[in-house]
Design a protein around this nucleic acid. Structure first.
Lengths: 168, 168
DNA sequence: ACATAGTATCTCGCTCAGCGAGATACTCGC
DNA sequence: GCGAGTATCTCGCTGAGCGAGATACTATGT
């Protein structure tokens, strides 16, 4: 358990954190009558709203790795629960814009709120320098993961131009 | 958009990291003909093997939040792919021990290997003090998440004594 | 204008992961 | 041994997500 390499410990810890957060999310989702995917969708939608990016089914499905049928079903679910509304884009009338409802925001907050409160409290024990270090670390990880994802995606579609999505 | 509170940024970054890692995992899983759950199960099994904890279907299902039927199906899948073997425990013959195959170890490594390599390389640019900070941060997060999970579990079963969810 | 290609979304039918309920096989205290 | 408790498996079902294709609109060439 005590590795010589410092990076290993960090990777394992990071993995443990993500597993924990994943489970917390799943539990929260279940309690609120939605699926892990739905929660992730809400997070994406809230992010989009926050950065003024127009949210559409297509974009959402792409981010979550769903195909169009699954995306439609997902949006149906969210709409039925009143978290989003479908509104035809008046400029490009093929598109549907997803408007996030107040209750979705509230739900997101009820999930992240307590987490943030706790984290903020604990992070007060970190100096500015330490905080900067943590942020640098997280940014680094994020970039590595993004790169990894791109490269593996490239490997998958490079050799043969076959679709190869679900090797059941 | 730009929060005054430092904790918020960190939480958002952390969330972004977990989403990214999640997607990477899902993609990797799919490419290897298994489901996200299967990959998580493999991780749990490797962790168990690593810490000399006997792995059984019951334990595994508990960790992943599956009920017994789902767990059986999961183990069936893993066994069919040759990642684990079912072996009756000779001491308590109700139990089944899950032996992890080499190929599962190799598979786990092919997922985490590149990630670890990259991380270790990047983490070399961190001083010992900074590494310690990062580790303290991760540990803190882990504890907060665990606490959050416990408390929400308590809240769920407190008001009405209904079953609602698989008790451990 | 008008066909044609391209794009965004939805519909239909299907597969299979995971659930609840219950069966089965074993251990252990009395 | 007998009954209570525990670990795993079986059965039938629900529903998330897939592939294929329909639909509705935009953009482009002629």
């Amino acid at each position: 358990m005590d590795e010589a390499e410092p990076g290993l410990q960090v990777v394992h810890q990071l993995r443990a954190v993500t597993v924990e957060l994943d489970l917390l999310g799943a539990e929260f989702a279940q309690r609120n009558g939605l699926h892990p995917t739905d929660l992730r969708a809400l997070i994406c939608l809230l992010d989009a709203a926050r950065s003024n990016t127009p949210a559409t089914p297509g974009r959402l499905g792409g981010q979550l790795g769903l195909n169009s049928a699954g995306t439609t079903a997902l949006v149906d679910r969210l709409e039925r629960l009143g978290h989003v509304r479908r509104v035809r884009d008046s400029r490009d009338r093929r598109r549907v814009l997803l408007e996030v409802d107040e209750r979705a925001v509230a739900l997101g907050w009820s999930f992240f709120g307590p987490l943030i409160t706790e984290m903020v409290a604990e992070l007060r024990t970190f100096s500015d320098t330490e905080l900067a270090t943590v942020q640098r670390f997280l940014l680094t990880v994020q970039q590595i993961l993004a790169a990894q994802r791109d490269s593996s995606k490239a490997t998958a579609s490079s050799p043969p131009p076959q679709k190869e999505r679900g090797p059941r």
